[in-house]
Amino acid sequence: MLELRDVHFYYGQIHALQGVSLEVRSGQVVCLIGSNGAGKSSTLMAISGVNAVSRGEILLEGEAIHAQEPDDIVRRGICQVPEGRRIFPHLTVLENLEMGAFLRNDAGGVKDDLDYVCSLFPVLHERRGQRGGTLSGGEQQMLAIARALMSKPRLLLLDEPSLGLAPRIIETIFGVLARIRDEGTGIFLVEQNAHLALNFSDWAYVMETGRIIMGDEPAVLRDSPAVREAYLGE
């Protein structure tokens, strides 16, 4: 459903994306692994329309979307949960969730989805009147995912959802992500935790200094000596 073809992006003088090509098929979980500064977040921001692509194209179901504004990308069904969760700190949990549904006009549907995301993460219902900034890291990650789901995305972009979280909370979050996947939402996952990402995905890409250097089934990558050494710490 989503395809990047030879995408280039400059961050000031830095050539951050140097011809990235990859594909996310519908109904699949695709992950992108790589070390810090490889360009994983830049790739997601390019898809979301925040980073202006200087060359190449991004296609959603065959249609070019790389020249569109971020709000148009959300309107087309791609929503990102960015690195560091980026909860609106002074909005309440409920208001954060409402912001996720900003582009929707179906009040009834929004209410149903509020109930739905609160059933996925009951803690959000308990904390609905609290300011987003007062939540713990794990709760913020849950809120960030729930907020993105409020836009009813076809494709969810996730940037480092496990970063800095306790194993028990990572388990909860990936349990919910599995449920979202089973309900038919595509997931494009960026992770530093390669073990976690490879176990969860149907297809995986490896990124290094602005380029995709490998793309294959997770099992194949797990057996690759280069990946084992660089990303799995073996």
């Binding site: 929503c79 980026r86 912001m99 836009s151």
Partner: peptide, 24 residues
Amino acid sequence: TKLGKAMRATAQDRTMASLVGVNV
């Protein structure tokens, strides 16, 4: 109001506001 909340959200994190679909 919805627009008022979008203003607050934009003030707190402009990029994030655009990622939930706010036309900044």
